[in-house]
Design a binder for these strands. Structure first.
Lengths: 175, 175
DNA sequence: GGTGAAAGGTCATTAAG
DNA sequence: CTTAATGACCTTTCACC
């Protein structure tokens, strides 16, 4: 199965410069291409080419702003594990049902008995119950077990991961 | 419990124009202030003032680009429910431990027996096991139950929520 | 409304794989 | 020889005052 590759670096999707550009943009979003090139001491065209490539390869998924549901009036977050009625057709009909509910922000098919994990938000606990009721109001959903997020301790961070890759790129390509 | 407010609009954090601006920025990130003002048929200063306010109120959390961990070489996502050893001090030491692991992208304290829900990524299933081992390598973590995301069906979307708020603002402020 | 600045594009040159 | 980086120039466009 697995080929015994001696090097722990099979194929680096990003190199050190890519990571530095990403970190700069993550920390100072409005810095721009020219600012980043000045800060990193490289040519502007280089930064632009790297950014184009990062966007092509999907590393930079979107430049859209991050909207906070809590500030929009939906401060309560919860995670629901849904049990789905076993049957042909897969999860597609369930996903369609979930996609129609704006308070469902995320949905994953997960390991287990063919289940789905979703992230939902609500205006308050009562509103959350309304959302859950709407989620389970589907013939394919047989059961929902919900946990409420009491506090977000780490939120949607990718900076440490990029920093880690930067360390790997520094120490991995030198020797 | 709830005060019997006759109007269903207790305090709208955003109005219709705000929603339209947000949706425009979410769909066309690089449109800019001037472009948005032209598209919406309002003055540039208006759009700029709205954007400033949305940023002040936290609705626009960040203008940083969205980095995809999968494209960075971490295509496997999993969710772990951690059981924490009951004791004084709360969850802070556990969160510190988790924050030191770059593959931990998210952490929530959730309802239940004082547990924590985290989102982790790995280069593959074996690497995911390494991450889990590191997560549970803490005196406060007594148990971890993991589910792997086999497929992401809905991903980090806020557009439907803003669209829903736009509908509310349209129909809610007219009468 | 005017102005400085940056983005985006192209090109030739140079260096390195 | 192919790929990438560089510096220079250009025009358009935007953000700020």
């Amino acid at each position: 199965m697995s080929s015994p590759t001696p090097g722990p670096t099979p194929r680096p999707p990003v190199d050190a410069l890519d990571c530095r550009i990403l970190l700069l943009l993550l920390h100072e979003p409005g810095i721009g291409v020219l600012g980043a090139s000045r800060r990193l001491g490289v040519a502007r065209g280089t930064v632009q080419a790297r950014l184009d490539r990062l966007q092509r390869t999907g590393v930079l998924r979107s430049m859209a702003p991050d909207v906070d549901p809590a500030a929009l009036g939906y401060p309560v977050t919860a995670f629901c594990t849904l049990e789905i009625r076993q049957g042909r057709g897969g999860h597609s009909p369930v996903v369609e049902h979930l996609a129609a509910i704006p308070e469902v922000l995320e949905a994953h098919t997960i390991t287990g008995s063919g289940d789905v994990l979703i992230r939902i938000v609500g205006r308050d606990n009562a509103d959350l119950q309304r959302v859950i009721d709407r989620v389970v109001d589907d013939e394919h959903v047989t059961r929902a077990s919900t946990v409420i997020s009491l506090a977000t301790r780490l939120d949607h961070r990718t900076v440490p991961l990029v920093e880690h890759l930067l360390d790997l790129a520094r120490g991995g390509t030198a020797p």
